[in-house]
């Protein structure tokens, strides 16, 4: 096998570097997808979370070899969707974005919750976001924004 072939934000790509490289570093440095933030490199903050085959995953804890044959979505590949627009609108209404560093990961965590559970309870939202540390908001605004998106986004998810 030569390169690592995967789908990135809808496009087929081939990565020629080492299979042991971190997905996080490759997304940021090789593909210049800067929405993916580095908060700890230990899987403890969620700032680097991406969707792999629609499943929320911390990209700091993924080696490139593991993404071969899979599909990765970052906020760059999600921000044009109607689902994103709904989430963004609801986050905006509650001013849920403060410093913004956790937000791309938080948005993908929200998508991951709603894509399997379009009508989550507050507890389910809190659990779904529990790997994404936000130091600014105290979480209430973010949790409520996701609940509002679920409520008003009927049919989107």
């Amino acid at each position: 096998m030569n390169g690592i072939n995967f789908k990135l934000n809808g496009k087929d790509v081939c990565y020629e570097g080492a299979a042991t490289e971190r997905l996080l570093d490759v997304l940021r440095d090789d593909y210049e997808l800067k929405s993916v933030k580095c908060g700890c490199k230990e899987g403890e903050c969620g700032a680097c979370a991406v969707l792999i085959d629609g499943v929320l995953t911390n990209s700091c804890c993924v080696a490139m070899g593991a993404v071969d044959g899979h599909e990765i979505v970052t906020v760059e590949g999600y921000r044009e969707t109607a689902r994103f627009a709904k989430l963004s609108e609801k986050f905006a209404e509650l001013s849920a974005v403060q410093c913004g560093f956790c937000i791309p990961g938080m948005i993908l965590a929200a998508e991951a919750i709603l894509s399997v559970n379009p009508h989550p309870t507050e507890d389910e939202v809190r659990e779904g976001l529990s790997g994404n540390i936000c130091r600014c908001t105290g979480y209430n605004a973010i949790v409520n924004a996701v609940l509002n998106a679920a409520k008003e986004g009927d049919g989107l998810w």
Partner: peptide
């Protein structure tokens, strides 16, 4: 899964996926 090995990230040895 990578969640442990990527935190320790041993160098110089290939990964068996």
């Amino acid at each position: 899964g990578g969640t442990d090995v990527m935190v320790r990230r041993p160098e110089g040895v290939p990964f068996l996926f």
